[in-house]
Amino acid sequence: MQSICKKQLLGLTGLLLVGFLGGHLGGNLFLFGGADSFNGYAQHLANLRPGLLLIEGALGLLFITHIITALNVWFENQAARPIKYIATNQNSEQSLASKTMPYTGLFILLYLIWHLFNYTYAFGINHQPGLLTIKLPNGTVETKDFGLYGIVYASFKFSILNTLFYVIAMCVIGFHISHGFASALQTFGFSHKKYTPIVEKLSKLIGLIVAVAFSSIALYILIFNPINAISGGN
């Protein structure tokens, strides 16, 4: 495939994945609404099966295409300069985000595997219960299955390391997008004296929103403990 086509494939899949993240974020925001709200949303999604499988399959294909194309581009780029410079360019104007795309990308891949195992697989396939022990306002302690909400809640509330990894991952994704979004538009040939600087700011803003919004849910649960949970089930 031609280099430009490859780049456009990478950009297209990237943009679609940003779209997916937007949807995912919308769903995650139900976490603010409590167990019924979030589980209701999850149930609603589950009800879409088997149509959902198609979407999931497409999503998987998106990820795989994005990753394989990115790796291919990266390896080719390494090969295009077999002997590296001895001195580093002091006048480099390259942004850190663009410089680190392959590395942030690989980190996101790691996170994705972790995420799939912890949430998607655990609940959707393994049907693990989401047990939480909560302290009711009247002082009694109760343990019950909160479903997917419980799994998510427990993972943020009762494992600082877990939450930290999640928050870092969200920041990395945001950082990846902060270059990726504008870059994809350039790759499709969008360039305008007035609007390109705006797109570049927008790209950073989208990255920031992704990082902040996803993280805020985890941090909200960790810090505010809205349902007063005292321990997780699993």
């Binding site: 280099s3 430009i4 490859k6 780049k7 456009q8 581009v73 080719e76 780029n77 090969a79 295009a80 300069r81 360019n89 006048n91 480099s92 104007e93 390259q94 942004s95 663009s98 410089k99 795309m101 270059h179 504008a182 870059s183 350039q186 790759t187 499709f188 040939g189 969008f190 360039s191 305008h192 004296k193 390109t196």
Partner: peptide, 27 residues
């Protein structure tokens, strides 16, 4: 190699060729 829109080229170009030319080529 493949372009990853780092824009180092524009920063270095002694004739100030703009990366909008790359966008034009892409489209």
């Amino acid at each position: 190699g493949n372009c990853t829109n780092t824009y180092e080229c524009e920063a270095t170009c002694p004739k100030d060729i703009n990366v909008s030319n790359i966008a034009r080529m892409n489209r």
